[in-house]
Nucleic acid binder design. Structure first.
Length: 883
RNA sequence: GCCCGGAUGGUGAAAUUGGUAGACACAAGGGACUUAAAAUCCCUCGCCAGCGAUGGCGUACCGGUUCGAGUCCGGUUCCGGGCACCA
């Protein structure tokens, strides 16, 4: 055995052996239970960053642990290879996105392999390859024919200078990131997946996912946002026609408080009113500026303008003014809302700004009670005072009205026949009255909107539709798939270059054979990532999307990925799974049985801003702090310190693990990453402490080396031991218990590592070279190597091979007999404060413990001869004496 | 703005079900070994008072429940993730 720990030699030897023996290749034919361990596949941005290392190490620890536990493990890897960064790189460097992407994949695959992950590389896939997206196109055509996919208008960010659609990320402070032009909203036709048809199942299905974090399920449930409300209409007459303005509300109980309505700038009512009102037309044009992102809509200043038109309140017959509001979006709901400024914060602000009437229609329950009591009379002086206090404490203020509204525990006032009704009764009565008038009904609504998947971009999966003047939108027949994306294209940032490719665009109609045009929009990249987990089961199948192997492996037993994907990716994948189920491709209802959401690895961002507002982002590795000022190393000039954000391509704050691997080896990088924090916690990146992780591996190596030098022996398997050896062996088996639980149930690896560190510290202190002590040492080192092997596989395998040559690793089992302890120590508290300890037999009864505690010097000192008021005994933990 | 999380020593963190706050590490300081350095090993290390024994305070902030709160409840601040075209 080598005396020195030499990571480069150990790691390359181990990796070469794993590769040549294909040890991580998963076989379908196995009598062992399957364990499908999947980490979210990376976007090939160029280099790995610490977020990837963390994600894939977590997955690898779980995969390797389950292999040691006897499972047939599959851990695949691939690339979500279409996307915006490739087009940005193409514009910046004049390289085709395809070439850039494939080069990145090669580099990142090498980096992943250097980290020693137990990946079945025979299943590798890249979503930009025709043999992958072919089946996505095939499913698209099936769903199109079924009506699950449909076409409608949708609003996008339009850059009028670059004449291109912008992603939300590319709109900065309302301007295009490259041109600096003011961004406009523009309506274009897009294809949509009818995800809302599955809204109920996506919501109720969350209850069948006990292996998912509560926070993710809460976020998804809120996102889907099921609410029961009332859809109703305000009738009006315009140009001699009877029309209806439809709105939806979850608070029909406040309908009597409506003092105006607000419609979107694109609403037909607004368009009509603007026809003979230039001021309004100008305001509508203004509303069309800015991005479509919800965060921008919610934070912008709420503005409006009166259309001059009035609609009729369906219950009071009052004339209600209609305003155009810049915060109302045509594509959400009805494109119009009723406004109750007395109880809705946004409506209140709007009404104040434009001096619109505010009418209270909800009153807190206790106010109502107090008023009633006073009216009825006969109150005692004290009772009257109490009621009056309630009233004076509840003077009408907009803040109070809003609270009464939010808490839904008030009653209606100023609402005519509905006065005195509570929330439920009022909603029911009002809905019934509206229904009787044929002007409304109760309706279940979802916040979730249909999924628009058209992207006006080149580097994506072509939408398999042909536009024919005679036949309309015709799906490409299966035998003509895939519609192959040409890979020799370099986008220039002004629109989709596919539009300029006659060889791509021009085609014949599959239906009538006439000249036709191919759709040039590509699909949202979330479509590719919505089914890759299933394709890993049968990546080589060319007879269809999936074969029977998909049902062998699905559902994924453990899915691991960033919390950033809690809603969109995970919801889309769940939706897609149900689409595939309904196509008969899979039999399960949900794709991911257990989910581990990794906390973000975050790092500082640094940038410089050019005169035109364009920002250049610098990698933290290229920046240093001098006297509290961030300086770019290359030119010595200052840079702006941005926020601390998740590592990303766009902010260039990804920390490449390569330097760490080169200096210390993959095992140290893995160990350090797992030791830094528990997986679910977000982690501000710092390599301070990596020395400690490396030192531990060196110490471990040295302990094993020293033992092996004296000759390997059979591991201890119990029996009578000297005290020191017995104590160590107890700690060993406690550690096995803890590490197993930490990895399997808690999925918290930092504490598992700490426990093995403690065990190794204790082992280093164990003296004696007798046969029994050496056998305990052997048992401890063997178990430590196995317990660490999921985290640091290279060094652990090398050590195990020295300790137990020619034998395969098996996860150690806990020897219950080794755990037995005769005496335990209890903490003594007086009035909840720690005042001492007492030793008692492990079997001691409550009475014995209490007596021992009261007799102890520490407690006697505080009792001063008095009897305690109360004694609390917590078995195995402490005694608290209350005096 | 809305939804979901988080905040514990100089630093990363631990405390699993309401029961010893700070395990395990990093950094720092002191010492051993060395011609010297590196490496390694040993010791100290929440804050305040005290020579010490010990005592008081302490888990972002304010309040509450409890024999007992880092943990539960109400409110606040700051930080991170998401907000449907970054992936």
């Amino acid at each position: 055995m080598q005396e020195k720990y030499l990571p480069p030699e150990i790691e390359s030897a181990a990796q070469a052996q794993w590769a040549s023996k294909q040890v991580y290749r998963a076989a379908e034919a196995s009598d062992r239970p399957k364990y499908y361990c999947l980490s979210m596949f990376p976007y090939p941005s160029g280099r790995l960053h610490m977020g990837h290392v963390r994600n894939y190490t977590i997955g690898d620890v779980l995969a390797r642990y389950h292999t040691l536990r006897g499972f047939n493990v599959m851990q695949p890897m691939g690339w979500v290879a279409f996307g915006l960064p490739a087009e940005n790189a193409a514009i910046a460097n004049n390289v085709p996105p395809a070439a850039w992407t494939y080069a990145n994949i090669d580099h990142m695959r090498t980096q992943l392999q250097a980290l020693g992950f137990a990946i079945d590389w025979s299943r590798e896939l890249a979503t930009c390859k025709p043999d992958y997206y072919r089946w996505e196109q095939w499913l698209f055509t099936r769903l199109f024919e079924k009506g699950v996919i449909y076409k409608k208008m949708a609003t996008v960010n339009w850059d009028p200078v670059d004449a291109t659609v912008l992603a939300n990320e590319q709109v900065i402070d309302g301007r295009g990131w490259r041109s600096g032009a003011l961004v406009e909203k523009r309506d274009i036709p897009m294809y949509f997946f009818r995800i809302t048809r599955y809204a109920d199942e996506l919501l109720s299905g969350l209850d069948n996912l006990p292996g998912w974090p509560e926070r993710v399920k809460t976020m998804q449930a809120n996102w889907i946002g099921k609410s029961v409300g009332v859809r109703f209409a305000f009738p009006y007459q315009l140009d001699g026609q009877d029309e209806k303005l439809w709105v939806f509300t979850t608070r029909a109980d406040t309908i009597m408080g409506v003092t105006f309505c607000a419609v979107a700038a694109e609403h037909p009512l607004a368009t009509r009113a603007a026809a003979d009102n230039p001021g309004l037309a100008a305001f509508i044009a203004e509303c069309k500026q800015g991005s479509v992102a919800e965060a921008d809509m919610a934070t912008m200043e709420k503005k409006g303008m009166d259309t001059g038109l009035k609609v009729t309140h369906p219950l009071t017959g009052e004339q209600v003014p209609v305003w155009v509001g810049n915060y109302v979006l045509m594509s959400y709901g009805e494109g119009a809302v009723m406004a109750v400024p007395a109880h809705d914060e946004r409506d209140f602000g709007f009404a104040q700004k434009y001096s619109l009437p505010i009418r209270q229609v909800i009153e807190a329950g206790e106010v109502r009670e107090a008023k009633k009591a006073i009216e009825a009379g006969g109150l005692t002086e004290k009772g009257l005072a109490q009621c009056e206090k309630v009233l004076s404490d509840s003077q009408f203020t907009p803040e109070r009205w809003q609270v009464w509204y939010e808490e839904k525990n008030g009653v209606c006032v100023n609402s005519g026949k509905y006065d005195g009704l509570d929330y439920t009764a009022a909603v029911d009565a009002i809905a019934a009255d509206l229904a009787a008038l044929n002007l409304g009904e109760k309706k279940t609504q979802f916040r979730l909107r249909d999924w628009g998947i058209s992207r006006q971009r080149y580097w994506g999966c072509p939408i398999p539709i042909v536009h024919c003047d005679n036949c309309g939108d015709v799906p490409v027949p299966a035998d003509q798939l895939p519609v192959v994306l040409p890979e020799d294209v370099v986008p220039d940032g002004s629109g989709n270059p596919l539009n300029k490719r006659a060889d791509f665009v021009n085609c014949t109609c599959p239906k009538c054979g006439g000249a036709a045009r191919r759709e040039t929009d590509t699909m949202d990249t979330f479509v590719e990532s919505s089914w890759y987990y299933a394709r890993y089961a049968c990546p080589d199948f060319d007879g269809g999307m999936l074969d029977a192997r998909a049902n062998t492996w699905l559902p994924v037993d453990q899915y691991i990925g960033g919390i950033e994907h809690a809603i969109l990716h995970l919801l889309y994948a769940r939706f897609f799974h149900k689409l595939m189920r309904d196509e008969g491709l899979v039999t399960s209802d949900e794709p991911f049985a257990n989910l581990l959401t990794q906390g973000m690895v975050i790092a500082d961002t640094f940038c410089r801003e050019a005169a035109d507002g364009k920002k250049t982002w610098f990698n933290p590795a290229d920046v240093e702090m001098r006297d509290g000022v961030a300086i770019l190393k290359s030119d010595g000039q200052p840079v702006i310190v941005g926020g601390t954000e998740k590592m990303s391509k766009s902010k260039n704050n990804g920390v490449d693990p390569q330097a760490l691997i080169d200096q210390y080896g993959a095992d140290t990088a893995r160990l350090f990453t797992m030791f830094a924090a528990p997986p679910e916690q977000s982690l501000e990146w710092s390599d301070a402490g990596v020395e400690g992780a490396h030192r531990f591996l060196k110490r471990l190596w040295k302990l094993a080396f020293e033992h092996v030098q004296g000759g390997v022996v059979a591991a201890c398997s119990g029996g009578d031991l000297p005290d020191a050896a017995k104590t160590l062996r107890r700690q060993l088996h406690q550690t096995i218990q803890k590490v197993s639980d930490d990895i399997e149930r808690r999925k918290q690896f930092n504490t598992a590592i700490a426990a093995v560190m403690e065990l190794m510290n204790a082992l280093a202190r164990l003296e004696g070279d007798d046969a029994i002590t050496r056998s305990v040492r052997q048992e401890t080192l063997e178990a430590a190597a196995v317990m660490l092997s999921p985290i640091v596989p290279h060094v652990a395998e090398a050590l195990y091979a020295e300790l137990k040559p020619g034998v395969a690793m098996v996860w150690p089992t806990v020897d219950e007999a080794a755990l037995v302890q005769n005496e335990i120590e209890l903490m003594l508290q007086v009035n909840g404060k720690l005042r001492g300890q007492v030793s008692v037999a492990a079997t001691a009864t409550r009475e014995v413990i209490e007596a021992a505690a009261l007799a102890s010097e520490a407690v006697q000192k505080y009792l001063e001869g008095q009897a305690p008021k109360k004694v609390v005994v917590v078995p195995g933990r402490l005694v608290n004496i209350v005096i």
